[in-house]
């Protein structure tokens, strides 16, 4: 989908470039551009909905060296380049596609299906109107409606989702979507051994986040690209392997026996334990760095000593020590 992103003066990303893989785990200190990367992608999605502007030459712009983000794409769209730039300080909505060929409608459709998530357990637990179940919203706030829609339209997918939930969290035996007294849809979890029913609002944060990720992983028509911030949040370190597997199910469906197009995944984390799980695939790890107020990206696999690093210990420990970079700057007197 997205092959690379190049930034110029976009927030802290003054001069940064990143080649994107089918799966990307982005690590780095706060304020190092992880969220800015996702915001740039979502801005591309937003602007792709609008009619394209006529090309504006640099000379016609009010500001010089204003923010600019350049996107390149994977086949079959690899001949196109999309550039978001600013005409003035207050107008940063210029999307230009070059060349604007016959494949723009197809590419535009793919761009518009990109999604970004920052899950909120309060929102996930909330009841949702039935009509809002088409796709999961950015905070997971319509999960109940999404699951109900899945049950009605793709019952096999919901059955697989339910089976995976029960395998990962064996304290539950079932997942039920039902109309609540307020007329909206709510989610309930049935405890094993008939020990009772847990409404979503009483479920743990980790359980709710897992439900949201399951809903993405078992979406029969998933987005072209999914960004998830703080993917480790709320999970016990031992559960992170399951979380990684669900994301791999999105990005590498063939490995899971699924016959659908792969979803490009960009996930951010601050968890060394999650990073440990990428020892066999260092090409999927992106390190964001902040030096002063400027941020850059690099790929772990591009380091010349990556083989030795992987032999010497866990990636998480290496990251914490600072060997990999991607750690906060410290002020020294």
């Amino acid at each position: 989908m997205i092959a690379s992103v190049a930034f110029r003066n976009f927030k802290a990303l003054r001069n940064a470039h990143l080649e994107l893989a089918p799966f990307n785990l982005v690590i780095g200190p706060n304020g190092s551009g992880k969220t800015s990367l996702i915001q740039a992608l979502m801005r591309l999605r937003l602007l792709s909905r609008l009619p394209l502007r006529e090309p504006v030459s640099a000379g016609e712009r009010d500001i010089a060296d204003g923010p600019e983000v350049t996107f390149r794409f994977t086949p079959p769209y690899d001949t196109s380049e999309a550039v978001i730039s600013c005409v003035s300080d207050v107008q940063c909505d210029l999307l230009q596609v070059d060349p604007l060929g016959n494949d723009w409608p197809g590419l535009r459709g793919r761009l518009q299906s990109m999604r970004s998530y920052i899950f909120d357990h309060h929102a996930i637990a909330a009841h949702a109107p039935e009509r809002e179940g088409a796709e999961l919203t950015a905070n997971g706030g319509n999960l109940a409606a999404v699951l109900l829609t899945l049950r009605e339209r793709e019952p096999e997918s919901l059955a697989k989702l339910r089976a995976e939930l029960i395998r990962i969290l064996p304290e539950y035996t079932d997942l039920v979507c039902a109309r609540e007294t307020d007329g909206q849809i709510g989610v309930h979890l049935l405890l094993a051994d008939g020990a009772g029913v847990i409404p979503a609002e009483n479920a743990s944060q980790g359980t709710l986040y897992l439900l949201a990720i399951l809903a993405l992983a078992f979406d029969p028509t998933p987005p072209a690209l999914v960004c998830i911030e703080e993917i480790d949040r709320g999970f016990h370190p031992r559960f992170l392997r399951e979380v990684r597997d669900l994301l791999y199910q999105l990005s590498h469906p063939d490995g899971f026996g699924l016959k659908r197009a792969p979803v490009q995944v960009i996930a951010t984390t601050h968890s060394p334990y999650l990073l440990d799980l990428f020892r066999d695939h260092p090409e999927e790890v992106v390190i964001s760095e902040k030096q002063g107020t400027a941020a850059t990206f690099s790929r772990l696999v591009d380091r010349t000593d990556v083989k030795e690093l992987l032999e010497d210990g866990s990636l998480g420990d290496m990251w914490f020590t600072g060997i990999l970079g991607g750690v906060p700057e410290e002020k020294h007197e």
Binding site: R167, R241, E242, D245, Y248, Q249, H252, G255, F256, D280, H281
Partner: peptide, 18 residues
């Protein structure tokens, strides 16, 4: 390689835990 052994056992280089 270790990766090849994994592939031979699991049929994929990204096996799920299950």
């Amino acid at each position: 390689t270790r990766g090849e052994l994994k592939w031979r056992v699991y049929g994929t280089d990204r096996p799920s835990l299950a």
